[in-house]
């Protein structure tokens, strides 16, 4: 495996970084999902067990981790739609830069209101 291939149009550009970010957010979301199914499964143990574990999530540290999780999910979701458009929409590849900007815009538009509301819940008690 060559350790340092020659530069290409793709390498190091936004297409590569969105691909890297899609992988990293995907892996993160997958591991969260495993834990999330396990904690939800506590509803079959007892209401107290479930409430106790969910209660430990209601603190500022986990609250901020949830902000990160939702940020990752929103990126993965809309970058995924960009991928679908590049693959299936005839004009997708030609408009790939605009699609990339679109992902950023949608991400900000959905993420900012979420952060405002969620942090109000987390820190407002």
């Amino acid at each position: 495996m060559p350790s340092k291939p020659a530069g290409t149009l793709y390498r190091g550009r936004e297409g590569m970084w969105s691909w890297v970010a899609h992988r990293i957010t995907g892996v993160g979301i997958f591991f969260f999902l495993l834990v999330h199914v396990l904690d939800t499964a506590l509803v079959r143990v007892s209401p107290e067990a479930y409430n106790e574990v969910i209660g430990t999530y209601k603190n500022p540290i986990v609250g901020l981790m949830e902000v990160g999780l939702v940020g990752a999910i929103l990126f993965h979701a809309f970058n995924g739609i960009r991928l679908i458009l590049v693959d299936f929409w005839a004009k997708g590849p030609r408009n790939q830069r605009k699609l990339m900007i679109g992902v950023g815009v949608v991400w900000v538009v959905l993420f900012v209101p979420f952060v405002a509301r969620h942090l109000t819940h987390v820190f407002g008690g």
Binding site: P47, N51, R117, V122, G125
Partner: peptide
């Protein structure tokens, strides 16, 4: 997370 009390509203009920 957005409707109602958000994270604070999550419990068994």
């Amino acid at each position: 997370l957005m409707l109602g009390d958000g994270i604070n509203g999550l419990d068994f009920a």
